[in-house]
Nucleic acid binder design. Sequence first.
DNA 1: CCGTATCCTAAAAGATACTG
DNA 2: CAGTATCTTTTAGGATACGG
Lengths: 124, 124
Amino acid sequence: MGKKKENSTNSINAQYLTECDLTYAVCKIGGRWKLLILCKLEDGKLRFSELRDRISGITERMLTLQLREMEKEGLVKRTVHAQVPPRVDYELTEIVQELIPIWKQLEKWGHKHRKMIQSTEVDD
Amino acid sequence: MGKKKENSTNSINAQYLTECDLTYAVCKIGGRWKLLILCKLEDGKLRFSELRDRISGITERMLTLQLREMEKEGLVKRTVHAQVPPRVDYELTEIVQELIPIWKQLEKWGHKHRKMIQSTEVDD
DNA sequence: CCGTATCCTAAAAGATACTG
DNA sequence: CAGTATCTTTTAGGATACGG
């Protein structure tokens, strides 16, 4: 019904998206690239090409897709400077800045878990 | 080379998995079902059928797959009771319990973000 | 420089039937 | 009860070429 999803990521299913705030949150920042992009913006604005160059392996298509989606969801702010050649930069919104301490903790947890697993598995 | 990945989820790419603790962490708990399952175990042990019944929409295959993977990664503990009919229960490991406060915050953030978005988008 | 448009692949998830 | 085994579908993500 209505509009077909054209090219967005992280849909998962509507069922839990509306029921569960955690599923909802994970969808906002899930997928392969989102947090990676947000991290790069942690220290301030970056332009498209700077992001692309800092995130090894990402294609321009993916970068655009993720940025557009996050813009739509109020996670990043996109600013176009009317000049030639064009200059566009991206920055974190306020609400996503509240996420920073959370992903820091997640990162620490990841580090700890990785160490734990490594000491556990002697063999493959 | 070596062993083929048979049926596991959340592989993403090795590149960031080994470089970035955040990507690593998100992979551990990412995907459609993992956090949903872990949440249910927050209050204590549950058996397979209890989990299945509490998570609407999940198939037995998916539940098994996710549980097995999380067991392998030390996120859940599986206990088989030798009796007929069989009884198997699952519980959180210590390291994943350290994640609980983090996902609580994420949940709160999700709630807040959802409210924000709702008040923003008057139209579709 | 900052993207979009197409086409394509791989991986995650679903349906369904069956088993110790 | 607690799963496996197959098979199919869906969707996230990738390759590449082109455009304002």
